[in-house]
């Protein structure tokens, strides 16, 4: 029952650039993460004010998904994400808000983002996708787990397509690489090819 799957398209957000299939669709000279997100949102996104309530990780994942999914009709699309820092970027800020008894201000609105998978929840809400989600954490980008898990979801017909990739925010550094796996597409769904696409957009 081994099937051959393909990558339809991929997006990347890094160094102030947003690209789809390697073509830059937006760039800014801003270096601060929040400024980059704000500029990209203004340029690329339809009106979605909830974006500004999201934490950094959700903003990054949301934007990387937005440029891939804006013309997508398939709603049976699983999400398989990964990163290195989990939600640590937000966790540190939350811990700062509770460490001092005299300045103890735990915020529910921040606490809820101290989970990496919330980013897939935000994308699911925006695109009305009721689907399989799984978030893996690795010390570096590695396609093996993503591709194996994705192939199994498609083999077992748990989804028609899978949105996969890497969304990482850590102390101001950020990097997103998302791709859509389907039965048809442009690129072969293999570990070397996924690595090639990941690295191509990095140079």
């Amino acid at each position: 029952m081994k099937n051959d799957y393909y990558i339809e398209r991929y997006s990347q957000i890094r160094d102030g650039k947003v690209s789809v299939n390697g073509n830059i669709i937006f760039q800014t000279l801003e270096t601060n993460f929040k400024s980059v997100m704000k500029a990209a949102y203004k340029n690329l996104i339809i009106d979605y004010p909830k974006f500004f309530k999201m934490d950094n990780l959700s903003k990054l994942g949301f934007l990387a998904a937005e440029v891939l999914l804006k013309d997508e009709n398939e709603k049976n699309m699983a999400m398989v994400f990964s990163n290195r820092a989990s939600s640590l970027d937000t966790d540190r800020g939350y811990q700062d808000s509770i460490k001092d008894a005299t300045q103890y201000y735990p915020s529910p609105a921040v606490f809820v983002y101290t989970l990496a998978n919330i980013c897939m929840g935000e994308i699911s809400i925006k695109h009305k996708i009721h689907s399989e989600n799984c978030f893996f954490v690795n010390d570096e980008f590695s396609p093996e787990i993503l591709s194996s898990y994705t192939s199994q979801l498609l083999d077992e017909n748990k989804a028609k397509k899978v949105l996969c990739g890497w969304v990482d925010v850590d102390n101001g550094k950020y990097n997103a690489f998302l791709y859509v796996v389907a039965k048809k597409g442009t690129f072969v769904h293999s570990d070397p090819e996924i690595n090639r696409l990941y690295k191509t957009t990095h140079e």
């Binding site: 983002y113 897939m120 929840g121 699911s124 009305k128 009721h130 399989e132 748990k158």
Partner: peptide, 11 residues
């Protein structure tokens, strides 16, 4: 086994 997102609210 199966999973499914509510696509409704994060909390």
């Amino acid at each position: 086994e199966a999973s499914c997102n509510d696509a409704n609210h994060i909390s």
